[in-house]
C-alpha cells in the first residue's frame, strides 16, 4: 500500500485544522479506517512516528486508529453480512448481486489539541 503517502495527506489536513483553530500543538489524531481499506496499521504507525517529527506543531502526536468493520448488503434478499468472511457472494441466498455498505473508510475523525 502507500502508507507513507497517506500519512503526508493526513498531516497536511490536520495541520490546516490545527492552525485554523489556533492550536499550539496537536496531541492526538484519531483516524477511522475501514476493514478492507487495505492499510497496514503497523506500517502506518511507523510512517507516522517518522513523519510527525518533521512538523513542529505535530511532533510527538499520538495516532489513534478506530477500525470500521466491512459490511456487504445483498440486493436480492436484503440481508447484510460480513464482507471479509464471505466476499462477493451472499451467504444467505447465494446471490452475487451485492455491494459494500461500509469498510473502505479512511477518515480523520477528530484531533486533540492544546
Amino acid at each position: 500500500m502507500h502508507e507513507l503517502g497517506v500519512v503526508f495527506y493526513v498531516i497536511r489536513d490536520v495541520k490546516k485544522v490545527a492552525e485554523e483553530n489556533r492550536a499550539e500543538r496537536v496531541q492526538t489524531v484519531t483516524l477511522e479506517i475501514g476493514e478492507v481499506t487495505g492499510v497496514v496499521h503497523d506500517l502506518l504507525r511507523d510512517c507516522w512516528k517518522w513523519a510527525v517529527k518533521k512538523e513542529p506543531i505535530m511532533d510527538g502526536a499520538e495516532l489513534i486508529i478506530e477500525e470500521i468493520p466491512a459490511v456487504t448488503h445483498c440486493e436480492d434478499c436484503g440481508e447484510d453480512y460480513e464482507t471479509v468472511k464471505y466476499a462477493k457472494i451472499c451467504p444467505h441466498c447465494g446471490s452475487g448481486n451485492t455491494y459494500l455498505v461500509q469498510g473502505r473508510e479512511f477518515n480523520i475523525k477528530e484531533i486533540g489539541v492544546t
Partner: peptide, 18 residues
Amino acid sequence: MGDFRILEVKQNVFAGND
C-alpha cells in the same frame, strides 16, 4: 500551554486529492 480540547474533523483523507 492551553487546555486540551478535541476538534471534530470528519474528513476523508482522500478528499483533498479528489
